[in-house]
Computed example of a mutant assay.
Amino acid sequence: MGEISSASTRRDDPGVPDADLARAQHGDDAAFTRLVSPLRGELRAHCYRMLGSVHDAEDAVQEALVRAWRGLAGFEGRSSLRTWLYTVATRVCLDLVEARGRRAMPVDLGPSSEHAVLDQAPRTDVAWLGPYPDAALPHADPAGPAARYEQREAVELAFVAACQHLPGNQRAALLLFDVLGFSAAEIAAMMATSTTSVNSALARARRVLASRLPARSQQQTLRTLGDPAARRLAADFAGALERGDAAALIALLTEDVTWSMPPLPHWYRGIAAVSDFAIQVPITRCPSWRHKLTTANGQPAVAFYLAADPALPHGAWSIAVLDLREDLIAGITSFLDPDLFGRFGLPTTIG
């Protein structure tokens, strides 16, 4: 792995002990673990933004750390260790993007459905974008002052989904520059290209994102709305489903609301289509709901549990991530994957 010759003082390694670095370079696994542990969270978030899957992100971080461990003896300190690790992780992600392609949302597969589609079969041939647990986000903001996006803005579903429409080099350039605040020269060294190529990739990536992102981020909306009001909206949404109260549910939605349910391919746009789906499927066909409030992708979310009878234990069913606009719900993405619950620290059954 090549060295990075220009390292910003903003991203120098805070408190990296020279003794641990020397020990790690001589094969001390415990010293290496001490060096990289403080950076795992932000590296995982970076890999998630690149890959659109928390599972893939964890695999990428693991592979990056294996590569870093093997190449650490050649690390000469011309960049910070953090910058070097981002180089390794980004290259791992670029290899995965090239091998696996991009992750999709139902909106990428075709137009919305006007009426409820019953008994859909999951699309197992599609690599679906997945949610990211907020607990896995780094607590400190690792970005430089020139970054265009806040760290939580850059894990919002709309942002990560938009990034999936970028080629790997554009995706990496945009995330490293606009999210993490690396310079064009640093990114050029990371990606073994020229500064001119980085600037060109940035310009193209920004045009794509401008055409796909909403004018207002969820973080901006949540700051205006406030956490208590956002949690109340999520709780009211979940409560309406549990009671089978279609009128209360519909009253929470914007006129142009969307509802999608990966891995099911059909999705709905507009109050009429979403109402028809809500009444015919979750309210009519699902006997008993329970829920726990959570957060995902920097957004309010609800973990739903389902049972055939209210008296029975309810099993993990879906995690619904909510897009809010003012004081209403503008988007619902229900990830139908019980395996996600463990990643969110949630039980798989509740009473």
Rank of each mutant, 00 (worst) to 15 (best):
G2D: 13
A7Y: 10
R11G: 13
V16G: 07
V16K: 08
A19D: 14
T33E: 14
V36E: 11
R40L: 09
L43P: 01
L43G: 02
G52W: 03
S53M: 08
H55P: 01
E58I: 05
L65N: 06
L72V: 11
R78C: 02
S79V: 01
L81H: 03
W84T: 02
V88F: 04
V97G: 01
R100Q: 15
R100Y: 15
M105V: 13
H115I: 11
D119K: 09
Q120I: 06
D141H: 05
D141W: 03
A143F: 01
P145C: 06
A147P: 04
Y149R: 12
A154F: 06
V160D: 04
H165S: 13
G168H: 02
N169T: 13
N169C: 10
V179R: 09
A189E: 15
T195D: 13
T195I: 15
S200C: 11
A205P: 12
P214S: 06
D236Y: 03
A238T: 10
G244I: 06
A247T: 12
A248T: 05
A248C: 05
V257A: 00
M261H: 12
H266V: 08
Y268N: 04
G270C: 07
I271N: 00
I271P: 00
A273M: 06
V281G: 01
I283F: 02
P287K: 09
W289N: 00
H291Y: 15
A296L: 12
N297H: 11
G298P: 07
A303Q: 04
A316T: 02
I319H: 14
I319G: 14
L324V: 08
D327Y: 08
G342T: 13
G342W: 04
G345R: 09
T349R: 07
G351A: 15
